[in-house]
Computed example of a mutant assay.
Amino acid sequence: MSRAFVKEDGPDNEPLPDLPISPHPNLVTPRGLADLRRRLAEAQATLQALRAREDRLDRLPEAAAERDIRYLEARIASAIPVDPAAAPADEVAFGHRVTVEDEEGIETTWQITGEDEASAADHRIAPHSPLGRALIGARAGDEVVWTRPAGQVTLLVKRIACPD
């Protein structure tokens, strides 16, 4: 195919819009900061591999990798590392693991982490999430009210632990 028929300017060659950056302070645990750095290195390696492709007509994967790199660099630059061990162990704080018991007697352990490492599936929550806000500052034996879209749940704080 002649290069005369290839469109050089167009939406495929424009940078993708940046990913939204949270307005909240970017608190990170040591694991969270290490994960951001690992993800940045992976995104940079991906971009390098994409740029080394012989056939580079589709620039969208490169634009996505560049966008991800911009996001990760911004998150690392704004990171506020917090050592969970520096907070009092008798009160729920950023980085702590908290075991709670719900109204049916089911115990669940949550860790309060930075936004970028928060994962409900892994029981890690951000401090400004509804559950995080309910738990921060609580002590073992306290009852807290977790306001969810499905209604309020009362939780009993059973244990507070600093991660390893």
Rank of each mutant, 00 (worst) to 15 (best):
A52E: 12
E107L: 09
W110I: 07
S2N: 14
I125W: 00
A64M: 13
G137A: 12
G137Q: 09
P130L: 02
P23Y: 06
D164N: 13
I106D: 13
R124V: 08
A121C: 04
D102C: 10
A93T: 01
C162V: 15
G132T: 05
I80C: 09
A34N: 07
A85M: 07
A64Y: 00
G151R: 10
G105A: 12
S129V: 03
D122H: 11
T46F: 01
E73C: 08
P23T: 15
D164P: 14
T108K: 12
G95N: 08
R75F: 02
T109P: 10
V82C: 09
N13G: 15
R37W: 02
V153F: 11
D9G: 10
M1R: 06
T154A: 14
A45D: 15
A45I: 08
A93S: 15
R59A: 15
G141A: 12
R67P: 06
T108R: 14
R39F: 02
P84C: 10
E66M: 14
P11V: 13
R56D: 13
P11C: 00
T46L: 15
Q44A: 12
E91F: 00
A87R: 05
D122M: 14
Q152M: 12
A43Q: 10
R70G: 08
S129I: 08
A43L: 12
A64I: 13
Q48A: 15
E143S: 12
N13E: 15
D116C: 06
